[in-house]
Every structure is written in C-alpha cells, then in structure tokens.
Design a protein around this nucleic acid. Structure first.
Lengths: 195, 195
DNA sequence: AGCATTAATTATCTTTTGTTAATCTTTTAA
DNA sequence: TTAAAAGATTAACAAAAGATAATTAATGCT
C-alpha cells in the first residue's frame, strides 16, 4: 500500500502517535471478497468501517418493489461505512456489495466508536470523516438543485472517470436520480453533439 | 424563550455544566433584524452561528446570471450558520437574509470554534450539529434520488407546514430543484386531484 | 464454445419539465 | 390610497424524462 498516497488522502494520519496508530491497527482485519459478494446487509445493526485496498464496492437500497437503487460507489483508497450504524446507531439502510474482487481493511464500528470515545486525541479522525461526509453531501445537493441530469452526468464522468468503465450504467443512473433509459438517451445526445 | 422546548430541540444542553453554559452565553449577542435585512454575505469569511428566537431566515446563492437560488429556510427555534465558514474555513457560498422581523442570538464562528477546541467536554455540541447536518443532507439526497418533484413537494408541505404560507413559492421551488412555473403546475395538479 | 442472463439501447407513447411571455394577484412603498 | 414592483398563475411550445416493450450487445457460466 502506497503510504504517501494514504497520507495525502487522510492527512490526520500524520498527527497520530504510533501508539494510537498501533492501537487502531490491532483491531483491523483484512477481508477478501469476490465480485458479487455482499458484506453488509440492509437492516443490519452490526457493521464496520471499510478501507478499500483494492476493488470496487457499491451500496444500494432495495425498495418496496424489490428494485435495487444504487446510491454510492467507492473504489480503492477510499473509505466507506454505514452512516446509520456509525453515526446514528440505527440499522443500515443499505446493502454493501463488492463489484470486483476486492480487498478491504475493516474495523468494527462499535470497536471504532469505543476507540474514538476513549481517546480524545482521536477526535480529529472522527471529525475528518464527518466533515468529509458533509462536504460530499452538500456538493451532491447543490448538483441536484443547480444542474440538469445531463450536466450531472457530465460532471460525474469528469469527476469519476475511473468508474465509468467499471460499473453498469444503471448504477450511475440511480445515483443521478434518473432512469437507465434516460441516461442512455443522454449519452447518445452527448455523443452526437461531439459529432 | 421556552426552556423545555430548547432542551427538546438540543438535548446536549442538559449535559453541559452551568460553567460551560455561562462561558458560552457570555459570548452571544442578540441581533434584531427587519424583513429583508441581509446579515451574512456570500463571500464573507466572517460569520456566526445563529439561533433564531423568532422570525424566518433564508440562505441563497447568486448565480452567474444574477439569479438568486434559495437553498435553505430556517425559522424560530432553529440554528443555522455557514457550513463553509464553520467547517471548512472558507468564504460563505451563500447570503443569509431575514424574511420577517427576526431576532437572532448569535455567536461568532471563530469564537465558537475556540470555545469548542479549548473545552473537550463541549465536543458533543459540535458532534450534535455535525450529525444533524449529515442526517438532513442524507435525507435530502434520498429525496432527490427517490422522489419525483411532485412527491418532494408533497413531502415538503407535510414536513414544513409552518413554512408554506410564510415564504414565496419560488423559494420552495428552488429548494425542490425545479422552476417556479413547474411548481405552480404541480400545485394545480394536486389541487385538482383532491377535487 | 454456446446458452442463458443481464445490461444497454432503441422505439413509441405519455407525462412532465423548461422556457418565454402574457396576465392576474399580492405586496410594497411613496 | 394608489402606483410600482414582485410573485403566482396560465398559456403555448419545445425539450426532456418516465414507462413499457422490443431489440441488440455484453457478460457469465457450465
């Protein structure tokens, strides 16, 4: 794992003492997943915080008609977890699934919470992730308010070029808040504009 | 001010010592505003956290065409502030304006940050507001992904019935991510359905 | 390799939204 | 109180999205 990149992604690491770091690392474990594996189920109260060493993960919601609606995609060097379990002590509203062979480093959410609660110096870690979450959410809301579906798609492909060829378009359509059929038409429109 | 209500809204208050509470209160000040008054400008780096004693406030973004796009409405017994200033140490992306005669209790964001940083026992206060923000944001994103504009409007009027007769419809249209014209049609459609 | 499944595209049609402009209605301010 | 301004509605049209179904393309599996 590229340590430089890690620090760049998670600047708070530099501020942690090696004691803190080891105290944290001894509770982590590695998980190897195959494409399609589900590792956290909608409704579960027990979950972990996952760092993606390699691979690709989606989280999705299953609606009353049994339709799966993808709401997040995360790939290597990113962190994800259930907001419900981590922040609100509620059952996860989403299922987490690997879309590729995936290696995760996980730490149980309850254990992590205890670590953070017991060691105030780790507070910055919690704050870092909460701030990051807020930042991402605010940006997503802005996009829904200010941009058309087409603009949102264009923004998506420039912002996450590494994802477009790795996941089904219908997952992206879900995240943009439109139907897969509509996304297909948008893509056609864009392609024809570039003649 | 109704103290019971305050504790219900902000449960962390109970956990604060009176020393902490007074230390906090001595930095607050009251602001009286008339309808239309702007009290925080887009681009400002200096702002406060505002508790609305009475009245109604909106925050809006002015786009490149000079159009104002309302993104938040807050009324009495609610708290608001600039996420950019408070969390990210960046200039506010939004202007804050009173829509009615409004009384605010404010505390300067920089002062508040120092108070929170200096007193770890106040960390729960910060966490409370960050969690609340995340919760609101996630819910808003869900609505954009899962609900049609009409459903979003219906949800809005059941969730915030106290707002519909106090603010122009066009502000609500902005927050729903649609045009005022479209909202007007939606309202007509809904009215005709109830015949 | 070949079959079955899943995803993506295309087509058709209906519904909804955006845009612009005109007309009412309400609010504001002189 | 009345004129001006701002907000809401309506109209008319173009553009886009939803829904459904059919077709084509891609993927997975044994």
């Amino acid at each position: 794992m590229d340590f430089e990149k890690l620090i760049q992604e998670f600047p708070f690491i530099q501020e942690l003492s090696s004691t803190d770091m080891f105290g944290f690392l001894e509770h982590t474990r590695e998980v190897k997943l195959s494409a399609g594996d589900v590792f956290l189920e909608q409704g579960s109260r027990k979950g972990s915080i996952y760092f993606i060493k390699s691979g690709l993960v989606r989280s999705f919601y299953t609606d009353d008609k049994g339709e799966e609606i993808t709401n997040r995609l995360r790939c290597e060097n990113e962190v994800l977890s259930s907001y419900e379990i981590d922040l609100f002590n509620e059952p996860s509203r989403f299922t987490f699934q690997a879309l590729e062979p995936t290696e995760l480093i996980s730490i149980d959410s309850a254990v992590m919470r205890k670590l953070l609660d017991d060691n105030p110096r780790l507070e910055q870690v919690r704050r870092y992730f909460m701030k990051k979450t807020i930042s991402e959410c605010l940006s997503a809301i802005d996009d829904f308010i200010l941009l058309s579906p087409e603009k949102r798609y264009l923004k998506f492909i420039t912002e996450y070029p590494q994802l477009i060829n790795r996941v089904p378009m219908k997952y992206i359509a879900n995240m943009l808040g439109i139907t897969p059929v509509s996304l297909s038409r948008i893509r056609k429109r864009i392609a024809s504009k570039k003649h």
